[in-house]
């Protein structure tokens, strides 16, 4: 699904990702952990194509396409989704209107039929219900006035409606209480199948109790320093990141 080779990314002229290799197969969930400043969010933004995140070397193959050649919206239509650590508030833009416009823009780009408003509302209402979110949020502006937890759950609503092939969740668990965390995890787990892949960026092992990863990677100073199964996350929880210095030494 995703093959990243020797990726280098600079932000503001400073190199943050310094040669990263990562392979994510269809249906796999990979966790990426690492200390602050290690490049976790940078990876997410670079894959999504955000301005200011300059890929200076390396390649990214996404389902047979050169991801780096695609514009931001083309990557979305190709099936990439980034759930932001800090979802953006967009005053005046109605949640339902925006999400339907986004879904139909992607479907149109893929040559698929657009979804009519009735079918769309039915779909999104079901997602809201499962994430225990008030339907009234549909009429509100995107993320405006939402609590932190609601913003994160709204990202999962979008994820569920847009049905990407690869979802990158950037610290989706930060700021969530245990109940909200479980809801988010359940929402993600409902979407797991043999074709859809996830990259879950997180600081804490706690989320991974609910979103059980196939692989765990530790990002340090712009590179993957260590990879393993879920026991690696448990080790980090016990020992912190100090053991990486020993390993690198």
């Amino acid at each position: 699904m995703l093959n990243i080779k020797n990726l280098h990314v600079a932000v503001g002229g400073e190199e943050i990702i310094k040669g990263l290799d990562l392979d994510v197969g269809p249906g796999e969930l990979h966790a990426i952990m690492g200390p602050n400043g290690s490049g976790k969010s940078t990876l997410g933004y670079a894959l999504a194509g955000r301005d200011g995140y300059e890929v200076t070397d390396g390649s990214v193959d996404f389902a047979g396409q050169d991801l780096l050649e695609l514009e931001v919206e083309q990557r979305a239509a190709a099936g990439l989704f980034l759930a932001l650590q800090y979802p953006v508030e967009i005053p005046g833009v109605n949640n339902a209107y925006f999400l339907r416009a986004a879904l139909n823009a992607q479907r149109k780009a893929r040559g698929e039929e657009e979804v009519d408003s009735m079918a769309f509302l039915k779909m999104v209402r079901e997602q809201l219900k499962q994430l225990k979110m008030d339907e009234a949020l549909l009429k509100r502006a995107v993320n405006e006035g939402f609590s932190g937890g609601e913003k994160k759950r709204n990202e999962i609503v979008q994820l569920a409606v847009l049905q990407p092939r690869l979802a990158i969740l950037d610290e989706t668990d930060s700021g969530l209480d245990i109940d909200a965390l479980k809801l988010v995890a359940e929402g993600v787990n409902r979407l797991r199948d043999e074709n859809r892949s996830f990259i879950v960026i997180t600081h804490y092992q706690r989320l991974l109790e609910y979103l059980v990863p196939d692989r765990v990677h530790v990002l340090s100073d712009g590179r993957i320093a260590e990879s393993g199964d879920r026991s690696l996350a448990q080790r980090l929880e016990r020992e912190g990141y100090a053991f990486l210095d020993t390993a690198e030494a």
Partner: peptide
């Protein structure tokens, strides 16, 4: 906001208009 809308599939022109 512009990036956020584009990352959901809207073109830049659509994002700006919205």
């Amino acid at each position: 906001a512009r990036f956020y809308l584009r990352s959901r599939g809207l073109s830049d022109a659509q994002a700006i208009a919205l």
